[in-house]
Design a protein around this nucleic acid. Sequence first.
RNA 1: GAGCCGGUAGCUCAGUCGGUAGAGCAUCUGACUUUUAAUCAGAUGGUCGUGGGUUCGAUCCCCCCCCGGCUCACCA
Length: 506
Amino acid sequence: MACSVEAKGIEAMEEKSDILAQRRAKLDELRNEGINPFANDFRATHTAAEVHAAHTDHDAEALADCGAHYALAGRIMARRDFGKAAFLQLQDRGGRCQVYVAQEQLGEDAFALYRKLDIGDIVGVTGTPFRTKTGELSLRAASLQLLTKSILPLPEKWHGLTDVETRYRQRYLDLMVNPEVREVFKKRSRIVSAIRDYMVAHDFHEVETPMMQPIAGGATARPFVTHHNALDMTLYLRIAPELYLKRLVVGGFDRVFEINRNFRNEGISIRHNPEFTMMEFYQAYATYEDLMNFTEKLICHVAQEVLGTLMISYGGQPVDLTPPWDRLTVREAIVKYGKVDPAVLDDHAALLQVAKKLEIDVEPTIGHGKLLLEVFEAVAEPHLWQPTFITQYPTEVSPLSRKNDADPEIVDRFELYIVGRELANAFSELNDPIDQKERFLAQLAEKEAGDEEAHAMDEDYIRALEYGLPPTAGEGIGIDRLVMLLTDSASIRDVILFPQLRPEKQ
RNA sequence: GAGCCGGUAGCUCAGUCGGUAGAGCAUCUGACUUUUAAUCAGAUGGUCGUGGGUUCGAUCCCCCCCCGGCUCACCA
């Protein structure tokens, strides 16, 4: 018995020293005093940003006379106590506002409550604006109410939260204490809105197509596999919406777009997350050349709208988005950046030698088109820092693109590169059902030969083409990568709120 | 999947050529009615990522594993 009493004593001591336990004890104390630590009867009239905006030009005298009265709600991010008065930083969705709490204004009871509050608590404050000695616009609290008690301590006020793992796992904390992170995600939202507005303004119709597909088509990538119990069937998370969107063009939606997630069961890197956001859009009676012009205008519109400039910087290097952007063919890019003799580009054996010299790992049986693309990616891609359209892709690597009328070895396709990264991929769509079926069959042969990423046969898509897909051009724009570019973010995880991580160890 | 780097208090970090650890901030107690990382005095706080090995003794050395970052591979 004596033993258990002693154990209890130790437990109590440990509890007293533990911040979580201290905060829990405060919770109980507040409840015992009849205060609801999770009240929901406060209505803010303004945000911190609105208060600042209303009084930017007001000096102390003007403020005293303005007669304004505000109710703000937010989280206490900092406090500086001076006995019977204190300053605190209140943070809401619009920013921060300093609040001056003094026993003189609040009264003894309310001030006693204030003293029980902690950094991290969410409160409602009413009061009048004034300027402190140092000129900071502040709210003189007339009343203070606890709205939500926080029982975990916030990261440090000066260094903040820098541990990358914690920032990704506990994004709520990251957003709470790192204002620049909040800005990135606000910007992301504005970018998506600007894109959507631009598309709608150009008569595109927004749609949503299946994320769970019986055939994962529209791209070459390994899919995630799942199972529907009631239908007892295998389903794939989509790797692209392409084939569904084109079905809609067949159906008469001449201009469609979708901004949504794709899922690809592949490696994770600074540029790849298993789920990522793409905008795909299709325009009937247009060609890939029309889309190049459109893409320039779209991205410039977004940059101008969100950043107010076309001269941006990424990773410390300038990027000039001013149109017109450079246009190079795959071959021209290889010659320009790889210092490769143009004659070699048509000589398979010689090009294989070039690839070998570049230490590109290629199968000896590789097709010429694939080989060209491999060499292009090795020698040219890293140099494409300023916005550049690359055209004339080999037919072999473009199973859904329309062949060029003059040269069937290439297709009417472009990819857009900025800061050495592929940002968009577009082509005039293949709308000949017989040609499409043959390309699917060729892909099928590759699949049987062991290529896991080869495109699957989609009979219904062929059927749709047999009804007639008007001449159409389509494009996919990687939204995450565009956001990375426009927010100067080094990692895709910095523009995805909850990037994929392994589960936290318990 | 491979290579390199990292994991120490709530947060940001230091440290121990092997003798069970420190600082700042946060927290607690006290002082303080215009601060701006407020200040001053005192105090609490750690299974040093997990498991094993070597050793009289491991947070430190060795091995396995877990988690993360970067590079590469796959890809957008």
